[in-house]
C-alpha cells in the first residue's frame, strides 16, 4: 500500500468553550487525530507560555482519496448544525492541500553536526565536516526513520558502544532505525554487523546509509525481528534501542542470541519502566554491569555470564 502523497487540511477556529466539541467532530471526519494551535506570548521556559485570548485553531487531515468529498461535506454539515447552536463560538471551515514533502523534510535544516561521547561525530550526509585525526564520523540521512543522534537514547547507546571492546567482534543491532548504531559499531571495528528492523521505511533508510558509508560488506540490514531462524547465530555484542515493552517481550530471544560473556546494550527505556525491564532480563539470567541515564531515559548494560 502506498502512503497518500497529499492530504486535505481541514481547519476551524473555535472559542475554547466550543473547542472540545469541534475537536470531537474533527476526530469523527478526519484521520489520525487532531492538532490544536493556540496563540501564545513569547515566553521562556521559566514560565509556562501564557495563552493569548480564548480562540484556538483546530486542524485535522484527510488523505487524498475517493471518500474525500463525502467526509468534507459531512464535517461541513455537522459544523453547520453546531454553528446554528452557538455560531458566535465557532468559525468557518477552511481547507487547503498539503503534501508530505512540505513537512517531512522541514526539520533537516536544523539537523547539524553533533559530537557524541569522546570520538564520535554524527553529521547529516548533505553537510561537509573536516574531522580531527582521531574522530569517527557517521554520515546519516535518517529520512523518516528513527535515529538522528539527537535523541538521548541514541546518545546513551553511542556513548556506551564507544566504551565496549567492539573491534573484531560480531554485532547484532535490533531495531536499527536509520542504521546509526550499526554504522557506529562497524566504524569502531566490528568484524560484521547484522541489523534488523520491522519497519520497511527504516530498512530502506538504513541500507541507504550503509551503502553511502561504504560499509555494505560489513553490515547486513534485514527486515524482521527476533527470534532468528533456528539454529540462531550468537553475537558478541547485541544492541537493542527499542522501547521498554518490546525489550521485555523480546528478553528471552535477546538472551538466546548473546554469545557466552557477550554484552547487551538495552536502551529506549523510559525511567518508569526501567525496573520492569531489568526484572525481565534478570529472569533470563543476564547480569547488570552498568546503568546509565540521560533525562528520563535509561540504558542497561548487561552481560550473559555463561
Amino acid at each position: 500500500m502506498n502512503a497518500p502523497t497529499r492530504w486535505l487540511e481541514l481547519s476551524v477556529r473555535a472559542h475554547q468553550e466550543a473547542a472540545e466539541t469541534v475537536a470531537a467532530l474533527l476526530h469523527k471526519w478526519g484521520e489520525g487525530g487532531v492538532a490544536i494551535f493556540q496563540d501564545h506570548e513569547q515566553e521562556t521556559v521559566d514560565h509556562d507560555p501564557r495563552p493569548v485570548g480564548a480562540w484556538l485553531t483546530l486542524t485535522t487531515y484527510v488523505p487524498d482519496s475517493a471518500a474525500i468529498a463525502a467526509r468534507r461535506d459531512g464535517l461541513e454539515k455537522d459544523l453547520w448544525h453546531l454553528h446554528a447552536f452557538h455560531g458566535d463560538l465557532v468559525g468557518e471551515l477552511e481547507t487547503q492541500w498539503v503534501a508530505e514533502e512540505d513537512w517531512a523534510n522541514a526539520w533537516k535544516q536544523f539537523y547539524t553536526v553533533l559530537h557524541v561521547g569522546e570520538r564520535l561525530v554524527i553529521k547529516p550526509r548533505w553537510q561537509d565536516y573536516a574531522p580531527a585525526p582521531d574522530e569517527i564520523v557517521i554520515a546519516l540521512d535518517p529520512g523518516m526513520a528513527f535515529g538522528t543522534g539527537t535523541h538521548p537514547t541514541t546518545q546513551l547507546c553511542l556513548e556506551a558502544l564507544e566504551k565496549l571492546p567492539v573491534a573484531g567482534k560480531s554485532v547484532l543491532d535490533v531495531g536499527t532505525g536509520s542504521g546509526i548504531l550499526a554504522i557506529a559499531a562497524a566504524k569502531l571495528g566490528a568484524a560484521y554487523v547484522d541489523a534488523l528492523d520491522t519497519d520497511p521505511v527504516a530498512v530502506s533508510a538504513a541500507r541507504d546509509n550503509v551503502v553511502e558509508a561504504g560499509l555494505a560488506s560489513a553490515i547486513t540490514v534485514r527486515e524482521g525481528t527476533l527470534p532468528l531462524s533456528d539454529p540462531a547465530p550468537t553475537y558478541d555484542v547485541v544492541l537493542a534501542n527499542i522501547t521498554a515493552q518490546t525489550l521485555i517481550t523480546l528478553a528471552p530471544h535477546l538472551r538466546a542470541v548473546i554469545a557466552p560473556h557477550g554484552r547487551l546494550l538495552a536502551c529506549g527505556i523510559i525511567d518508569a519502566k526501567a525496573d520492569a525491564a531489568l526484572a525481565a532480563f534478570d529472569a533470563e539470567g543476564l547480569r547488570l554491569l552498568d546503568r546509565r541515564e540521560a533525562g528520563d531515559w535509561v540504558l542497561l548494560d548487561m552481560e550473559r555470564p555463561t
Binding site: 502512503a3 492530504w7 487540511e9 478526519g30 484521520e31 489520525g32 487525530g33 487532531v34 492538532a35 494551535f37 486542524t59 485535522t60 487531515y61 488523505p63 498539503v98 508530505e100 512540505d102 513537512w103 517531512a104 523534510n105 522541514a106 526539520w107 535544516q109 536544523f110 539537523y111 538522528t148 539527537t150 535523541h151
Partner: peptide, 14 residues
C-alpha cells in the same frame, strides 16, 4: 502521518 507530521514539521521539529 498527519496530524503529527504537518503540525511538527512546519516548526522544524524532528
Amino acid at each position: 502521518a498527519p496530524p503529527v507530521g504537518p503540525a511538527l514539521g512546519q516548526h522544524g521539529v524532528n
